[in-house]
Design a protein around this nucleic acid. Structure first.
Lengths: 138, 138
DNA sequence: GCAATGATGTAATATAATAACATCACATTT
DNA sequence: AAATGTGATGTTATTATATTACATCATTGC
């Protein structure tokens, strides 16, 4: 059971609609793309989308991609528990698909670096850009 | 001699003005902030700023901070040579200052991870958020 | 001179995000 | 039932960020 399904009933109508749109998409969506998709369901203003997104991000069901100004549904089940967003993303510049990754070694390295620099880390934004396996010349 | 000074004469008038604004600032600036600062020098439209920024980023003299939609002057002299942006940023959420870092170990870890995931890396966006040394409770 | 190229100027538009304020739904208390 | 509090919604307007399209100017090479 996915986190979405698990907490499905806890979400409000708008949150559910936005979560549904992101879950069905096979890549990240911008807030305005979501708005357009949900117009048939009664959405009329950006704020309806942004408010839902804020909550979904807070719950760990959705992640924001800073380098795309877009949002993706969380692809695994361990995000909600941790306060810090311990995930990173591999964004294919060819097909647009995004893979969500967790890598303890990378996170440790980041934490270590922050400590060495006397920087008190609250969150790390790590977004890799390049070509995914399917989009590379074979 | 900084890279800015070194290539100063190669830059066009607008590029020089934008570079100057960023060099004087003690933190990142948005394109529109730069525009406002340069109005007295004849700037009138966003595009004048964006065009200069594009070139400066390409030259490695300026970096774009994806999570802030803002730009900073490069803080060291090794950026221009490398095609991939092998730098990361520690962004203080209290004072707004940004520290530009190079960390071979972190970069290796990233490259390694990308390889394991069959992801052909073109660029990595790494932006740490938190509190810098000066802003932490002592 | 004249074409090619790159830089610039300007207006308009597209895209992303928030502010401000009114209303609604529902639970709690009295 | 009435009053109240709270969180979710709806709506309009505005602010912030970035790009498109097109005209003009400067420099270089022929």
């Amino acid at each position: 059971m996915s986190k979405f399904e698990a907490s499905n009933t806890d979400l409000t109508k708008n949150q559910n609609l936005v979560m549904g749109a992101l879950s069905q998409a096979n890549g990240p969506l911008s807030a305005y793309t979501i708005l357009d998709e949900l117009r048939e369901h009664g959405f009329r203003a950006p704020l309806q989308v942004y408010r839902a997104l804020d909550k979904l991000v807070e719950l760990g069901l959705v992640h924001r991609l800073e380098s795309l100004n877009a949002f993706v549904a969380c692809q695994h089940s361990s995000c909600g528990g941790d306060k810090r967003e311990n995930v990173l993303f591999a964004i294919c510049e060819t097909c647009g698909k995004v893979q969500e990754l967790v890598d303890e070694r990378l996170l440790d390295t980041v934490k270590n670096l922050a400590e060495n620099e006397d920087f008190s880390l609250s969150k790390s934004v790590i977004e890799l850009r390049g070509k995914c396996g399917s989009c590379q010349p074979s």
